[in-house]
């Protein structure tokens, strides 16, 4: 039953139609979540007693950092699906996640650095989290570079799938080694980014924003995947009927 659904989802016309119907709903939900999260985060949540209002960067920074890992996990997962079952849609999801994943990682890095300026007094500190985020950005850029370097896109997708799997094995190792390195060099890291106890009025907007980011990711991936699919299958029957139906 589940396998049948996966195979059905793997068929390009079905995926195209389904994603087209889903997109308006996703956009609406995403908009509502962003509006609620921003209102809660910028207006309702009280200022932090230590960091004042600068802590409000958390609502941009922390979900972006979460997403940077989450997207990589999705990429590795669809990479495995693409390699094992040769599902075309999995390939397309994998490669179209890379750009938006890099965007999230970049955003987490820059906002972390902006946040660091009032907190640490400098724009950049070789803090464990920022450093592993930077390395994660390089992993994303490597995937994008490899994909664009290989001309045959079917081949490129498989290469990227292998690379994503290698990367996902390495991420915990890199993360652990960087953590280890930073504790040796500057004592225990400043744990400003995660507090054990956080006011619920601060926490709820954070969770709302995290969900909003997830929906945003889904929207961007679907938009890009649909474009990719249309172009790859431009000579197929279903694209032709799709365009004749529109009465072009």
């Amino acid at each position: 039953m589940i396998m049948r659904f996966i195979y059905q989802l793997g068929s390009p016309p079905y995926f195209y139609a389904l994603s087209g119907r889903l997109l308006p709903w996703l956009s609406g939900l995403c908009f509502i979540l962003f509006a609620a999260g921003l209102y809660g985060g910028l207006v309702l949540a009280p200022a932090d007693y230590q960091q004042g209002d600068s802590f409000r960067i958390i609502y941009i920074h922390v979900p972006a950092a979460w997403m940077s890992l989450f997207v990589y996990m999705i990429m590795a997962f669809s990479g495995a699906m693409a390699l094992i079952w040769r599902i075309k849609i999995a390939e397309i999801i994998l490669i179209n996640s890379a750009h938006i994943g890099a965007v999230f990682t970049f955003l987490a890095l820059v906002t972390g650095s902006i946040w660091g300026k009032p907190m640490w007094g400098t724009w950049w500190v070789w803090d464990a989290r920022l450093t592993s985020e930077l390395l994660l950005l390089f992993l994303y850029l490597g995937i994008i570079a490899l994909y664009s370097a290989i001309d045959d896109k079917r081949k490129a997708a498989r290469a990227v799938a292998i690379l994503a799997l290698v990367g996902v094995v390495n991420i915990p190792i890199i993360h652990y080694s960087v953590e280890w390195w930073s504790t040796l060099h500057q004592g225990p890291t400043v744990t400003k980014f995660d507090k054990p106890s956080i006011d619920t009025r601060m926490l709820i907007p954070l969770l709302l924003m995290a969900f909003a980011y997830k929906f945003l990711y889904a929207i961007v991936v679907l938009l890009r995947a649909r474009n990719d699919l249309l172009w790859r299958e431009r000579r197929s029957q279903w694209v032709a009927t799709l365009f004749s139906k529109e009465g072009a």
């Binding site: 200022a47 409000r56 820059v110 938009l223």
Partner: peptide, 29 residues
């Protein structure tokens, strides 16, 4: 609370990159 530059530049950057991520695929389409 005096942190306007830091807070709003973060939110502005987020708006910019997310906006681009959505607009570019639409234009491509």
């Amino acid at each position: 609370g005096g942190y306007a530059g830091y807070v709003w530049s973060s939110y502005g950057l987020a708006l910019l990159v997310f906006g681009l991520s959505i607009i570019l695929p639409l234009k491509e389409k």
